[in-house]
């Protein structure tokens, strides 16, 4: 199975995945101007500089979340059906391997590749913060939870790729992400403020279907101290219930659910790949 893991990573390298790395490098580099810009805009106090650094870390973590997910989707979406169509798997499968070894090998290969990338990016973020002010550790605390993003989207994309071609698998995965984002950022406030029960149920349901909001809260719990006052404060109106709905607390069980969610999609993909013809 390790041979498959290595092969997958080699393929990932070759697919110019590092081009994406360059893009994110540029984005992170752009961020390094943020603290200075903030300081100038807000009258030059050290406090505003600190605020800028905090925002830089927050945005940096967001960027890492986003790009590592994109990377995982790109690599996983073409992992099975596209490889079958291109004829790669027909030559690998006659080897004495179980199909699940190939599937898990691919999964692990992509995940390790994404972890390696996220590590590099986080190090960059850390260095560029450390160069401007004293070293900060929040991005490292957030990293394990940030990694859940590529894991979740990669696993979903891989499961879809077991029966659909790369464009379709990535399209559906991105659509799932967009749906979760929409539910969390637009439906949730509307449901809270106007207290529409049906909408609230819909938002909760969406969290079960694509637990991106859960991941968001898990990450946020690690970088909470950075959020500037007033940015994430509870709204001035609304009952206890509504506030709770807007900002649910983080539970350990959330993590368990995310684990079960990953396992579910892995099993779905495995099951389909196990049964399908490879031609």
């Amino acid at each position: 199975m390790w041979t498959i893991v290595m092969l997958t990573m080699q393929e990932a390298m070759r697919r110019r995945a590092f081009l994406g790395t360059l893009i994110i490098l540029a984005a992170l580099y752009g961020l390094t101007f943020l603290p200075k810009a903030f300081q100038q805009a807000l009258g030059g106090s050290p406090k505003s500089f600190e605020l800028g650094v905090n925002l830089m870390i927050l945005f940096g973590v967001d960027i890492i979340k986003f790009f590592s997910s994109v990377l995982a989707i790109l690599l996983c979406a073409g992992a099975i059906t596209s490889e079958i169509e291109r004829g790669y798997l027909a030559a690998i499968l006659p080897r004495p391997l179980h199909r699940f070894e190939i599937f898990l090998g691919k999964w692990l290969g992509v995940m390790l590749f994404c972890v390696a990338n996220a590590l590099v990016w986080t190090t960059l973020l850390w260095v560029s913060v450390a160069l401007q002010t004293k070293p900060r550790a929040e991005m490292w605390h957030a990293l394990p939870y940030v990694l859940l993003y590529p894991m979740m989207y990669g696993t979903v994309a891989l499961a879809l790729s077991s029966f659909s071609s790369a464009p379709i698998a990535s399209m559906f995965t991105v659509a799932a992400g967009a749906f979760a984002y929409f539910a969390d950022h637009f439906l949730r406030p509307i449901a809270a403020f106007f207290d529409v029960k049906l909408l609230q149920q819909l938002v909760s349901l969406s969290e079960w279907v694509v637990p991106m909001a859960v991941l968001k809260r898990l990450v946020q719990a690690r970088v909470d101290t950075l959020v500037p006052p007033g940015m994430n404060d509870a709204p001035p109106v609304g009952s206890e219930v509504v506030l709770h709905f807007l900002n649910p607390p983080v539970h350990l069980l959330d993590l368990v659910y995310v684990g079960a969610y990953l396992l579910f999609w892995l099993l779905v993909g495995l099951f389909i790949f196990q049964r399908r013809d490879v031609q």
Partner: peptide
């Protein structure tokens, strides 16, 4: 068993030797 597929497509970023090494490891 050893198998040569009809529509063979090997990982073409490998060299001949690397491809054989990969298949040897898989075997």
């Amino acid at each position: 068993l050893g198998f040569l597929p009809e529509k063979f497509q090997f990982h073409d970023f490998l060299t001949a030797e690397e491809l054989l090494r990969l298949h040897g490891r898989l075997a």
